[in-house]
Structure formats: structure tokens, C-alpha cells
Design a binder for these strands. Structure first.
Lengths: 177, 177
DNA sequence: TGCAACTGATTGCAAAATGCAATTGGATTG
DNA sequence: CAATCCAATTGCATTTTGCAATCAGTTGCA
């Protein structure tokens, strides 16, 4: 894929992974939105990613070791994408990025709910969320007691409706234009 | 400049600021390398940025409110670039990015020294460093007692020699090729 | 005074990345 | 058996990137 290696600096190498306009968006939707399928990522993308870009980035993220792909047993054509540990440990970066954006950029209030929650919960919440992701994506044993509200539920509750409405609007605009 | 606004999501908006291969590299060199002039950024860039890209990104970062430019009183042509508070508060993101890169990417040991120091020092060290940056770039009063070693000094000590050697090599390769 | 070196850029141009629209071949649903 | 859904792929125009060369003004030095 991309074996630039302009330098061995950690920040530079991280940038060679995320220094584009889509990779981190896809990971955001998988991590926080719980998207696992191509169509989910395509149709519920707030930013309206194109299918060829999505296909390219999924391939790239797999090559980089951030995602894995498996057949969905319920549907022979469906592929299910999973986060690797490498991707799951991006949660703190996402949280910091969200916190910074909330302060300095013209964010929409309704879309900042997740960032706010992550910021308030701090590292302990991030850790719990990462455990949940390990459970969902890597089959690791869950450390959350059954019945207790998951971070995922908290993150989704207020957010999902907004995202789906927005994505709906976006599709509507596209089809009628 | 770039008024995409694909969505008001904090992570997306942050990505619209840093979602390219150079902006954060320039900020890294200003924050951690202490670069303040065009030529410094150009000649001591580990990754070998081109002058037109550098000029473009400096302009863009100014438009976005991350940098300011002032005349250098010692030299009528020299411009001196300063970090704004908006840029200074990127330190935690840089630290997280460096920490993540150190774990998951093929970083060079000698270039990871800074990331390691930031990781070990944790948020308190980041805060001290940010204060130093405010002192240097915004003229804020210094909270470090005079004589005490600054974070900047610790960060640079082991690093600067490496960077300058590398940059030297890079220039050498370019001129002889 | 004259000239080389240095200042922060700008220009021209080729290559690569991006993104939209349409389409593909196979699977599933009704 | 037709319509729909699946994960992509293709074609193509636009945009971005990045290298090389160049620029005009400033400075340092002889």
C-alpha cells in the first residue's frame, strides 16, 4: 500500500496512517457508531463517503492492521469488519481530538454529545469502553457486569437518532438532485 | 480557504484541520523543535517538506487561527511565526498520537525519545510544557522558576542532534542527486 | 560599491489522489 | 423470476500534491 516512511518519528508515522480525510472517519463510525458492514458505513455516513473511497480505505486499514474482515454467517455476501486491538487503542486519541474540536471548532451541539461524554468520563470511561469493544470485536470476556449500562449504550442513546436523520437528509438530497 | 464543513462532528472538524500529510508535521516542529522561521521549518524538516507546500500550509494554519505571523525586528525580511493558544492546546493530542505510534508503528528509537518523555511525564508535564509555550509564543508570564530545567530543554537535549544530522543527510542526498 | 548568500515566498508542471456516477456479478427476498 | 441488496469496481473529471526552478528584496562581507 503506502510504504512512505518519510521518517521514523511516531507523530509522522501516525500521520501516514491517519493523514487523510476518511480513514479516521470510518474508524469513528465503527468505534462509536458500531458499524460493521460496508452498507452501514456507506449509508449512515454523516459526511457522505463515496463507495469507491470506502472500499479503498477499508482495504488500506486492513493492510495496516487496524481492521479485519470475516464472512457474515447469516448472509453469504455480507462481510463483517472488526476492529483490531490496534484500532481499539485509538479511543484516547479520538477522545482528545473530540475534546479539542469541541473547544476550538464550530461543532454542532447535537453532534458533540459523544465527545462531551468521553471528556467527562475521562480515562476510566475510555478504558471501560475499550473493554466493551474488545468484547464485541475480539471476543474477549466482558468485564461489565450483566445488566449494567454499557458505555456504548450511553454513547448511542442520544446520538443515533441524530445521525440517522442527518444521513437520511443527505441521501434525500442526493437522490432528488 | 477550506470551508468544507462536511459535518459538525468534532472529530470530523478536527480532521478537516489536520487531515493532511503536512499541517501537523509543521506544528510538531514548531511545538517541539522550537522552529519559528520559514527557513528553519524548511531546512530542518525531517520529512523534507517542499517550500510551496510549507508556504501554503503556513497560510492555511494562519487562516484557521493556529498560527500568527510577525516581523522579526532583527531582519526586515524575516517573519516570525507564533503558536496561538489553539495550537498550544494540541500538546495532549500530539502526546497521545506519539504514544500510540510508539506502540503500533515501526518508529525509530532515537526519534521516539520525545514521545517517551511526554508519555512518562503525563498530563502534568504536558501542562508545564504548554505554559512554557505560552511564555515563548504569547508572552505570558513564566511559571517555571528561573534556573529550573524547562521541559523544552529536556525534550531537545537528546533529540536536536539527531534531527539536525538527519536533515543534513537529506539535504546532502538532494544536492548530489 | 559589488556580489554572494539568504529571506519568504511564487510559478510551472507532472503525477497522484479524490470523488461522483454508473455499473458489475453474485445472493437474497418476495 | 423479478426486484432488491451485497460489496465492491470502473470510467472520468476535478483537485491536490510535490518537485524544480525561479523571484525580488535584504543582508553580510570584501
Amino acid at each position: 500500500m503506502n510504504i512512505d516512511r518519510r521518517s521514523g518519528c511516531p507523530i509522522n508515522l501516525s500521520l501516514e496512517v491517519f493523514g487523510d480525510r476518511w480513514s479516521l472517519i470510518i474508524l469513528r463510525d465503527m468505534i462509536f457508531g458500531g458499524r460493521r458492514h460496508f452498507r452501514e458505513l456507506l449509508n449512515f455516513s454523516l459526511e457522505g463517503i463515496a463507495s469507491n473511497i470506502l472500499a479503498d480505505r477499508l482495504k488500506r486499514l486492513m493492510a495496516l492492521g487496524l481492521l479485519t474482515k470475516a464472512d457474515d454467517p447469516s448472509h453469504k455476501q455480507k462481510a463483517i469488519y472488526s476492529l483490531t486491538e490496534m484500532a481499539i487503542t485509538l479511543v484516547p486519541i479520538m477522545a482528545q481530538l473530540g475534546a479539542w474540536g469541541r473547544v476550538w471548532l464550530p461543532v454542532t451541539e447535537e453532534l458533540s454529545i459523544r465527545a462531551e461524554l468521553l471528556e467527562k468520563g475521562g480515562p476510566p470511561l475510555w478504558e471501560q469502553f475499550m473493554d466493551e469493544l474488545r468484547h464485541e470485536h475480539l471476543g474477549a470476556p466482558s468485564r461489565t457486569p450483566p445488566g449494567a449500562p454499557t458505555v456504548r449504550q450511553q454513547l448511542r442513546a442520544a446520538y443515533e437518532a441524530v445521525v440517522e436523520r442527518k444521513a437520511e437528509e443527505l441521501r434525500h438530497i442526493k437522490t432528488e438532485a
